[in-house]
Design a protein around this nucleic acid. Structure first.
Lengths: 143, 143
DNA sequence: TGCTCATATTGCCAAAGACGAATTTATCTT
DNA sequence: AAGATAAATTCGTCTTTGGCAATATGAGCA
């Protein structure tokens, strides 16, 4: 239907790399690790400070077993790192690029939602050249 | 084990946004769409040019039904857009930020693999202050 | 109206994975 | 060593989802 190509917050140049099958599989696997609200919440809870497991459990909610399992997934993916101090275990972010990823996705989602609002206001997809309401989106806060 | 915090290709400042539960769910859902090699391959095949479905099927392989379903998922997520021309349907990228995401992930994976190589060379995690082999990673091509 | 090609959809099955309950492992204390 | 606390692991169940086969929809043409 729509013919416009929104060029939201595209930062880099348009140089596309050739990606092998194996590379795509690795990328997909990382996305899979991040495709879980509980894990995203854990990462967000960690922020840039180190936190103990019980503290994380209190923050994100859910059973201890599940949180521990999620932490294991994040650890194996190299997104967090562990430190043992006596009986406690402390986790911290080991790969800060995840926040970059979330920011890019947030910007994209804001664009998408804003476009849907516009489509409600002008249902047929009205072609108004003087209106710069499409492509060059406002920067709305997501939360 | 490791105590270093790799600051690979981190572009932005360290300002973290507060993300609501709903925002995290939306972000996770987008990651879930991207967490599938077949879909990533479709997106990569599309690149910046429009392509017909049968052409896509030939490029990515697999059954027609599956490719069509993947295209449906991508369409509903707003990552691609459709255009009908007679009996054929053409798809194109509608959200170029996905390439930014893949690039960030690729850079992170390169860092991770390079670190694993270093760990093989010095198994105990040798603390050599004069060695800048950790943090400030080389830029290896993934594929 | 049929017929054909191109794409989308549905039903079914199997694999993956997330949750909850229960158990195990590990560490420190007494 | 026994007990207590913290974290990880195992097991069973349920939901999701990707692949395959078959069918349906839709557009153009005879």
């Amino acid at each position: 239907m729509s013919e416009v190509v929104p060029r939201g917050g595209h930062v880099g140049k348009s140089r596309r790399k050739e990606l092998s099958e194996a590379a795509l599989a690795m990328i997909a696997e990382r996305f899979k690790v991040l495709a879980e609200p509980a894990r995203l919440k854990i990462l967000h809870t960690l922020g840039d400070s180190e936190r103990g497991v019980s503290e994380i459990i209190r923050a994100v909610g859910g059973l201890q077993a599940n949180v521990s399992k999620h932490l294991g997934v994040l650890l194996q993916a190299g997104l967090v790192s562990r430190r043992r101090q006596g009986p406690r275990v402390f986790y911290r972010i080991a790969d800060t690029t995840i926040f970059d990823l979330c920011e890019v996705v947030c910007a994209s989602l804001r664009n998408r939602l804003a476009e849907q609002i516009d489509e409600i206001h002008s249902p047929g997809g009205v072609r108004r050249p003087s209106s710069r309401s499409r492509s060059r989106r406002r920067a709305t806060r997501v939360a």
